[in-house]
Structures are given as C-alpha cells and as structure tokens.
Design a protein around this nucleic acid. Structure first.
Length: 919
RNA sequence: AGGAACGUAGCUCAGUUGGUUAGAGCAUCGCCUCGACAAGGCGAGGGUCGUCGGUUCGAAUCCGACCGUUCCUACCA
C-alpha cells in the first residue's frame, strides 16, 4: 500500500460521488434537509465557511447514512453592496464611473463578473468534500427567486406591511446608499470636542456655549436645548440665539434628553443629522434642515461659502471661521464612538431620505413565540437570548438600497409621484386601471440582500410554486450559522417564513462560535492574519503566503509588518494537510464556546491521525491477505473486548452528534482508534496471527474481527473524514462491506451494553494494568524495550493466577520477559523493582538491570502519593458528619479505598527497606 | 452605561445531575529503528481549577462579592 497522501485520493473520490449522483436525495426514508447559508456568489471560501460547512456536512452525511432522504440545498446570494462595490472598483481602474455606463450596462458588467468569479466558491466547496445537492443550485437573482421576492413584496405592500417614507437612516456617503444598523460598526476613536459660542439674539453680549464632536452639523441646527430644571439656563428658554456663520436664528428649548452634567449642559439640536436630535425635533416641532448631499458634501441649504465642500473640509473651514469670529471657546481632546460602514470603512452619516420599510410588529410577534414555544430550538440554548433581545426591540426594517445590483423594487410612480406596487408594470396598470398612455416610472432602488435571503428556505425549494421539493423538505430541519447572523438573517427568515409558509423555516438552529487565529484575533485581511482553507489543504510556500497576505493592502507600513509576522509564524510556509485533517480539526474545536482559536498544530495532529488510521488499515490488510476460513471462528478475549469498546464508541458518537457536540464525537473516535484499536487491539492480535500453533478457529476469528472493526470505524468516521474513510473502505474485501460507496452504507447504531461489567473488558483491563506496571518499571529504569526481563509474580488473588496463566501468551508478546514465574513464598523474593496491581505484586529482580537509586526514588514517590491519599481519606472518614450524612455506598467505597492503600503502603515500605539494605 | 459569557497544566481546550488520585492534544524530559505507522512506540514530569467568602458531610461543578478577559446592545452632545 502507498503512503498516505491526501492529494491523490480526495478529488477523484469527490468526482465519483458527484457523477454517481450520491448527493441527491434518495430512498424512502424520512426527509432531512438543510439549506446552505448562501455564500456570496462572487466570493471565496474563508475559514468561517470551511468550518461551518465541515459541521453541516458531518450532520448531512450521518443522516444520509442513517437512511434519511437527505437534501443539502445549494445556493448563493448576490451580496448587493459588496458586489456593486467591487464592480465599481473594477470600473474605476478603467477610469469609469458606474454612471458612465448606466444602469443596464452596469448590471451586465456585474453579471459578467459573477460568471468570471462565480465558479470559485463552488469549486472550493467541492474541495471541502461538501455533499451538497448541486443539481438544484439556486441564486438569489435567478428567475425563480426573483419571482418569490416580487411576490412577497407585493403581498406585504397590499397588506399594508410595507410602506415608503422620508426617514433618518444610516447613510454611507462613499457607497451613496442607506445601510442597515447592523452594517454600522462603532468603534472608539480619538477626536475632539469643539466648544462653540452662540450669541443670544436679544442680548448679544450674552451667549450660550455648546459642545460638539461634529461642528459642521451646526449648519443644520434648529435649536439649542437645555434641561428643563437647569437653573443656569431657565431664564433663556424661549429666547433665540443667532446661529453663527448663518443668518438664521434658532430657539432655546427645554428637553429632559439633555444631561445637565455633561459639558456646558447645552446641546445643539440638529434633527436632520442625528438620531437623538431627530426625536427631540419631533417633540418640539422643529424644522428638519438637511445640509448634506448623498455624497457627503455640503448641500445648498447651507451658506454659499461651504456648499460643495466635503464634510471634513467643511469642518476645518467652519472651525477656522469660528475662530476668526472669536466664537470658538476651546477644543478638547475627546474619545468618541465613531460609526463606520462595515464595507466602505467611511464615517456613516444619519441622513434624511426616502426609503422603503417593512412594518415588523405583526411579523415579530409570531416569530418570537415560535422560539418561546419550542417550535424552533436554539443550540446552545443561551443563544436564543441574542434572538429575543434583538426581536423584542425590533425597529421597522429599512429594505431599500440606493444601488443597481439587486432586486429592483416593484413600485412605479406616475408624474404626480403617486406610487403603485405590483408584480409587473402590466399588472400595475391593470390593478390600478392606469391606461398605457399614462407614463409610469419604476423606483430606482433595489432591495436589501437580506430581504431575498429571508425567503431562502422556501424560495430555493420553488415557492411560490407548490413543488414536491417544498412539500417534502420544508420546514428544513436545521440551520447552522454564526451568532453574528442571528439578527441579520435568522430572525428575518423566521418572520418571513411564518408569514408566507405558515410554518417555521427550520426546527433547530445551531449557533457556532467565531474562528479566530491562534492568538484569539479575528481573522481579517487588513490584519493579514487570515488563513485560506485551500492553503491548509494543498499547502503553500512562505513566499506565496506573504504575497497573498500583503497584496491589495492600503498601507505600505502594514505590509512590512504583516510580512515579518508571516515569515516568523510560517518560516517554511504551510504543509499540505489535506481536507480530512482540516475537517476533523474543525469538528474537534467546535465546542460550545463563542470563539475558537484555530491552530495549525491541531491540523497537524489530525493529519497524523489520518496517517495512523491509514497505517492501521494497511496492517489489517496485511494481516488478512491470507484469510483462514473456518466454519466456527472463535472470538478471542481481545476480539470480544474491542467489539464492546467499538459499540461503546458508536454510542458516544451518536449521543454527541444528537446534541451537536462535534468535539466530543471526534474525541471519541480519535481515542478509540488510536488508544484502543491501534495501541492495544492490534498489538493483542499480533501473537494470535503470527503464532504458528494458534488454533485456526481463533486466527479466523481475529481476522474477522480486524476487518469488521476496521469497517465499522470507517463507517463511524466517514461524516468527519469522508475521503480517507471512503478510500480505505473501498480497499476492503467486498465480503465485509455492502454497496458501491461508504456514503451509502449504514451508520453504526447505538446499542445498550454493559461495558464495565463485561468479562472481556475486565480481563483486558487486567492485562493493561500488568503490562502497564512492567512498562513503568522499564521506563523508570531506562531498560530498552527489546531487552528481555525476568518477571516474578507474588501474592494476588486466585483470579490473578487464572488470568496470568490464561493470557500468558499475550503478556509475553507485550512485555518481552525472559521468564515469568510465580513466587509461592514471598520470603524467597529477591531484591527487585516492584509494582502493585491490586493485591498482585509484580517484581523485576534487580540483577544488573535495576538502578537502586532510581528504584528508591520511584518507591518514595509512590509511597508519598499513597500517604497523602490515606491522610485525605482518613480525614474524611474521621468526620462524623460525613459518615452519617453521605450515602452509604460512598462511605464504604472510601473505607475500601483506604484499606487497599494501607496494604499497598505496607508492601511498598517493606520493599523499600529491602532495597535500602542493598546499598 | 446596560446585558451576557468566560477564567482548569507552559499553550489550546474537555470535565454530564456536586461524590475514585481533575483529563486530552500540543509543547517539555528520558528510553527506543521491536515486521502497520519516526507523521511512530514506551515511560515520566507538570494544576492551591482567577481571588475571597457562603451553602453542603463533601464544591472545578451551586450561590455572592471582587479581580481579569471578551463579546453584544446603547450612547453623552
């Protein structure tokens, strides 16, 4: 057999699975479905995707093997803002603006970009081994999904749940569109607090001083507010101040919103440029003065001197002008939270504009109760708090975006500006009886991408058509996503699906944590600490990695820093670890924690695990090429033990997977394969297989058990490591496997077993203890493993004697003794190194092997440990309260323990004296 | 400011309803080419479970306070 090399096995297997149609739902089983959280069609696979899809594929593959009619629905979204931004940047490189092309040509250009880059994410998902149903792949802008979007919009509008209005929204001046609250990232930055004097109109010698972090907004001020009970200013309430730099006069009003203890206790009110001021303005009926254009320049509502200036240049000029008029009192350093657009990075402005909104009240109520009643279950349960917190304070959802790439809003206006909504222009004319002679103009805006994503679970299955797929696979069973997406997507899917399907989009939501780098830092391009899953699978040289991380960076200084850090962390680049190792790693770090540090060391460990499994399979193949066939094969103690242990592992894995503890599932597999199957079972098989005298029935039994256990391991492992498991499985003799692919084999089922009480388990435990005792002596004494040692047994129970004689062959194979002898009379015992297994004493005579000092040290250590334990337990038992209150079995257990320790202590101390006398 | 979580070995993390000497991987140290595997085998060292208090016969586990870290929500002009 060849050495384990993931590169050579993985992709051919995937191609075969796909061409054979194994990813399609099949069989008559109960339906099980998951909709993929749609990746950006023009995007690439990042670590978060790779992680998430590793988990989902594990779930899907297991369900498929369990006989469910399984669908993992594939699809992508159009990622409105990001894609438009990228296409605009591409145009900019050609010296073009989107407006130079016009709407239709721009959209064509975007589709062109989708076609160029669109294959990448699909290709990468295939590399991950994702068993997605490609044949029914959907895209949010395709015909069917677009129809669903129009349908939903129209129905909501007709029911009065969508409205249009002029509102203050988060505005991105660079992208010139509204954006969601959730796409605004506020972070603390160093800024200034400008104190400005506003002269009182009727008493120009008097003035009010206000503080602001955005002095340019003074051009839009409509009032000055003070706290109603602030005695300092009460006499001024109702008077007017002269707004500097303008010819306007604005009132001084009283409003409890003002914190009298902050700054001067006076606040300038700019209702058209601040959310709080907007509310104050509404209360006091103040005018809304919008002084900024959509591109962030000063609008012509402002004094001519500032019109057309960028907002930050205007700020400078205003500060300068105020200074020259002696109206600037002071400038203080000030830390403030600056809101920036997640995509564009520029400072977001609250801006007054016409937008479309979804009225969420009536949609939110059933969505909240669906989770309260348990129709939808969040895992881990705590994460439902994120959902509730968001849903209970839900504001109307602004769904319009001033973009071209997306679903154009199905609304038309006549010349008077009256709005008509319908599925098409024709329908609108018919519905509202508008003759074709009346000109209608469609709304220019498109819908928020999340609007179409909210329909995802049912639109991808064919809605509004009543399809079989919809009937069979909706509600979907599970949604797997990150906590950051709960508000964006999960909540909106629940609202929309309940509204239009009258059922939940999914029954369970598994919320996973965020994958960070080994230092716990969020992976990001600007930090240059990101990893590309493909680089972990295929490997990458240090040069290529540095190049990749430093290209397209904005700051050159960062480039040098990132290059240095990268070369330090990956001096030799990254090795090729293969998909299976990566997937296994993702599953094993998927604990219930909110964030998971990703460390390549873990991947390396699991790549080694793949190698271990590969070599074990190799050994099984070698050991079974010459099959001994016997009609009545005998199962050895090891065979019986490993079968029980395997069943126990299956139980653990199934239980873990049923509760979405991917970490515990992979841990159970890893420990069984490595620590039990490889380290003990294969070793215990060797004497049976190589023994010339071995009973052929036993040999046949062992060969059967080797093959069956390996086959079971592969089925158990497949959801986590699909490639290596399939490859090894296909190499097994057809007599021990069923079907053309491991993908279609049965998943091992849980089964109740009494593991600890089973005789084979206890026998193997005894063997492990005896072998362990001897290995400890060898280890501590630095006796080479191939050097035979004489072994003496003494004391012990009848059972010890029986086992020793019954399993002598196994003990010989595992401990390499020169002799194994029972001492009838303990007095005969020579000076020796000693280990205790229960009451059984295991001795290795000193002869020339044993270092007296080393042995004494070992004994002292052991005795001290026991003394500590005895003291601890005796203390416990001396406590009357413990003895009378604790359950009797606990008390008697402690009593038994202390007496065992006493015996052991006596034995070891006697031994110590003996050794000491040799010095 | 409000809400939530977390703090266990040098590092990354498990630890179920409170009850054997608190576990694993990586790292460290010692021995080893013994016929699956050096991407390996065997052995060993390493923890007052953040601190203090409380409940309990008994606390890593339950409760409270404090210290530290992180996230979320809101925001002071």
């Amino acid at each position: 057999m060849e050495k384990y090399d993931p590169k050579t096995i993985e992709q051919p297997l995937y191609r075969r699975w796909e061409s054979e149609g194994y990813f399609a739902p099949s069989g008559d089983g109960e339906a099980f479905s998951i909709a993929i959280p749609p990746p950006n069609v023009t995007g690439t696979l990042h670590m978060g995707h790779a992680f998430q899809h590793s988990l989902v594929d594990a779930v899907i593959r297991r369900k498929r093997m369990q006989g469910y009619k399984t669908l993992w629905q594939m699809g992508t979204d159009h990622a409105g803002i990001s894609t438009q931004m990228i296409v605009a940047e591409q145009l900019a490189k050609e010296g073009l603006k989107p407006s130079d092309l016009g709407r239709d040509a721009f959209i064509e250009r975007a589709f062109q970009w989708k076609d160029e880059s669109g294959g990448q994410i699909s290709h990468q998902l295939r590399r991950m081994g994702a068993s997605l149903h490609w044949a029914t792949e959907r895209f949010t802008l395709d015909e069917g999904l677009s129809a669903a979007v129009v349908e939903v919009f129209t129905r909501l509008f007709d029911q009065g749940l969508i409205y249009r209005g002029k509102r203050l929204v988060n505005w991105d001046p660079k992208l010139a569109t509204s954006i969601s609250d959730l796409e605004v990232i506020s972070e603390e930055e160093q800024g200034s607090l400008w104190h400005i004097r506003y002269p009182v109109k009727d008493n120009p010698s008097a003035s009010i001083v206000v503080a602001t972090t955005r002095p340019e907004t003074m051009l839009g001020d409509s009032a000055i507010a003070v706290h109603p009970e602030d005695s300092r200013y009460q006499h001024l309430v109702g008077q007017f101040v002269t707004l500097p730099l303008t010819d306007r006069e604005i009132p001084i009003i009283a409003d409890a919103y003002v914190d009298p203890d902050f700054g001067t206790g006076c606040v300038k009110i700019t209702p058209a440029h601040d959310f709080n001021d907007y509310d104050v303005g509404q209360r006091h009926d103040l005018p809304l003065i919008s002084m900024m254009n959509p591109d962030g320049t000063i609008a012509d509502t402002a004094p001519r001197a500032y019109v057309g200036l960028d907002r930050f240049e205007a700020r400078k000029k205003i500060v300068a002008d105020l200074t020259s008029k002696d109206l600037l009192v002071s400038i203080d350093d000030h830390k403030l939270m600056v809101p920036r657009g997640e995509k564009s990075g520029v400072v977001i402005e609250p801006l007054l504009s016409d937008q479309w909104f979804v009225k969420v009240d009536s949609l939110a109520k059933p969505a909240i109760s669906a989770v309260e009643t348990g129709d939808i279950r969040f895992i881990p349960e705590q994460t439902e708090n994120i959902y509730f917190a968001w849903m209970r304070e839900l504001k109307d959802w602004c769904i319009s975006r001033q973009q071209w790439w997306g679903h154009r809003i199905p609304a038309w206006y006549d010349d008077a500006g009256k709005v008509y909504v319908g599925r098409s222009l024709d329908e609108v004319r018919q519905k509202y009886s508008i003759s074709s002679s009346v000109s209608l103009r469609q709304d220019d805006d498109v819908l928020d991408t999340w609007f179409s994503s909210a329909l995802w679970t049912f639109s991808t299955l064919g809605w509004p058509e009543e399809t079989d797929a919809l009937e069979t696979f909706h509600s979907t069973n599970l949604m797997v996503t990150g906590h950051d997406i709960i508000s964006f997507w999960v909540s909106r899917m629940i609202m929309m699906t309940l509204k239009f399907m009258d059922e939940v989009p999914f029954e369970e939501v598994y919320i996973h944590g965020l994958v960070t780098d080994a230092e716990g830092q969020k992976m990001s391009k600007s930090k240059g600490n990101g990893l590309d899953p493909m680089d972990i699978i295929d490997g990458i040289t240090a040069e290529a990695l540095v190049a990749k991380r430093t290209q397209n960076l904005l700051q050159a200084r960062q480039q040098a820093k990132i290059e240095k850090a990268t070369r330090k962390e990956y001096p030799n680049g990254i090795q090729a670890y293969g998909t299976d190792a990566l997937r296994f790693t993702f599953c094993s770090i998927a604990t219930s924690a909110r964030s998971m540090r990703f460390d390549l060391k873990r991947v390396e460990g699991y790549r080694n695990f793949c190698n271990k499994l590969w070599n074990a399979a190799n050994f099984v193949a070698m050991s079974t090429t010459n099959r001994i066939t016997h009609e009545q094969p005998l199962a050895s103690v090891a065979d019986q033990w490993i079968s029980l242990q395997f069943q126990h592992t299956c139980n653990l894995v199934n239980q873990a997977m049923d509760t979405y503890r991917f970490d515990l599932a992979t841990k159970a597999i890893y420990e069984f394969v490595w620590d039990e199957f490889c380290d003990w079972y294969l070793e215990l098989c060797k004497p049976v297989l190589s023994g010339e005298q071995t009973d052929p029935r036993l040999k046949a039994g062992t060969q059967n058990c080797l093959l069956e256990t390996l086959e079971g391991i592969l089925r158990l492992t497949h959801p986590f490591m699909p490639f290596i498991s399939e490859e090894l499985w296909l190499n097994l003799p057809t007599t021990v496997r069923e079907g053309p692919s491991l993908m279609l084999a049965n998943y091992p089922q849980s089964q109740d077993i009494a593991l600890d009480d089973a005789a084979p388990v206890q026998d193997i435990q005894w063997i492990k203890a005896v072998v362990g005792a001897l290995r400890n002596i060898r280890g501590e004494q630095d006796i080479p493993p191939n050097k035979p040692i004489p072994i003496l047994f003494s004391q012990g129970s009848i059972e010890d004697r029986e086992r020793q004689s019954k399993y002598a062959d196994l003990l010989v194979a595992l401990t390499r003794p020169s002799s194994m002898v029972w001492l009838d009379n303990e007095e005969e015992a020579p000076a020796a190194a000693i280990q205790l297994v229960g009451t059984l004493k295991i001795l290795v005579p000193l002869a020339d092997l044993i270092d007296v000092d080393a042995e004494l040290e070992r004994l002292n250590k052991e005795i001290q440990k026991i003394i500590n334990e005895i003291a601890r337990i005796e203390g416990k038992l001396a406590n009357q309260a413990f003895v009378s209150n604790a359950p009797t079995e606990i008390v008697s257990k402690e009593k038994a323990k202390v007496s065992d320790y006493q015996t052991a202590k006596t034995d070891l101390e006697r031994q110590k004296l003996r050794i000491q006398s040799l010095r």
